[in-house]
C-alpha cells in the first residue's frame, strides 16, 4: 500500500542544509496499522510530511498503491490519502462551522448527496448533527479531534496518516479517540501510518512499529515482540525501559 524506499531528505537551511531523514525503508501492507516511534526530532513527522506533499525535494522513492507520489498531484491523491493532525485546535479553520469544514472536501470533489455523506461521517465518529452549525471554539478538544477524523474519512480514503492524534488530549479522551480509530480501522478497512512518541498508544493500535532515531529506522518490530520485550537494538530496549519505568 505504502512503499518507502531509500528515502532521504535534507532540510534546507541558512548556509548548509541538515539531513533529517537518511535512507528510510518502510513497507506498509493493505489494511495494516503501522507505527512510527522515536523521540522528538527523530524524523517521524518528516516522513508524514514527505507523504503529504509538504516537504519537497526528497530523494528516493515513495509509492502509494504502486504509483510514485512524485508523479501524482495532491488532488489525485486526495481520494486515497488523508491526514489527522496532532493539534485539534489548529487543524480546524477557526472561522468555519463544522458543516462548512465537512462540506469543503465534498465541494472540492463535486460529490453528490453532501448531506447524507456528512451525516454518515459524523455518525461514524460518534457525533450528531447538532454540531453542524457550531464553530470549532465551541467544541472540546476530543470533539474537535472527532471532527478532524470525520473530515479525513469523508472522502473514503484507503490510507490515513495519523500525526500524534492523541498526544494533545486528556488521558481519558485519548482512550476514546484510540478506540474510535481502532473501530474505524476494522469497519472501513483503513490503512494507518501513525506517528507517536508514546509506546503504549502505538502498542494499542499498531501491528508493526518502526523505531526511529536521528533520522534513521533502527528497527522494525511486531507488536507481540514489543510487548514481550523481544527487541534486538539497544535503543529500542532503552525506549522500552523508559516506557515501563514511567508506569
Amino acid at each position: 500500500m505504502i512503499a518507502i524506499e531509500s528515502l532521504s531528505f535534507d532540510m534546507p537551511g541558512a548556509g548548509k542544509s541538515k539531513r533529517i531523514l537518511n535512507d528510510i525503508n518502510i513497507h506498509v501492507g493493505r489494511g495494516e496499522c503501522f507505527g512510527l516511534v522515536g523521540e522528538s526530532g527523530s524524523g517521524k513527522t518528516s516522513i508524514l510530511k514527505c507523504l503529504a506533499g509538504q516537504f519537497k525535494g526528497w530523494e528516493g522513492g515513495i509509492a502509494v498503491q504502486g504509483k510514485s507520489i512524485a508523479d501524482t498531484s495532491l488532488k489525485e491523491r486526495s481520494n486515497t490519502m488523508q491526514m489527522v493532525f496532532q493539534d485539534p485546535y489548529g487543524a480546524l479553520h477557526p472561522r468555519h462551522t463544522i458543516r462548512k469544514i465537512l462540506n469543503e472536501p465534498l465541494a472540492i470533489k463535486g460529490l453528490p448527496d453532501k448531506a447524507e455523506r456528512i451525516h454518515k461521517a459524523l455518525k461514524d465518529v460518534g457525533l450528531d448533527e447538532s454540531f453542524l452549525p457550531r464553530y470549532p471554539h465551541q467544541l472540546s478538544g476530543g470533539q474537535r479531534q472527532r471532527v478532524a477524523i470525520a473530515r479525513a474519512i469523508i472522502l473514503d480514503p484507503d490510507i490515513i496518516l495519523l500525526d500524534e492524534p492523541t498526544s494533545a488530549l486528556d488521558v481519558s479522551v485519548q482512550a476514546e479517540i484510540l478506540n474510535l480509530l481502532a473501530s474505524l480501522h476494522h469497519r472501513r478497512q483503513l490503512t494507518y501510518l501513525m506517528v507517536s512518541h508514546d509506546l503504549g498508544v502505538i502498542a494499542h493500535l499498531c501491528e508493526r512499529v518502526a523505531v526511529m532515531k536521528a533520522g534513521e529506522v533502527v528497527e522494525v518490530v511486531a507488536r507481540e515482540d514489543l510487548i514481550e520485550g523481544n527487541v534486538t537494538h539497544n535503543y529500542t530496549q532503552s525506549l522500552l525501559q523508559h516506557a515501563f519505568s514511567r508506569e
Partner: peptide, 10 residues
Amino acid sequence: DYVVAAQLQG
C-alpha cells in the same frame, strides 16, 4: 494544519 488539510483534500 487546516491549510495543509485543505491541500490534502485537493
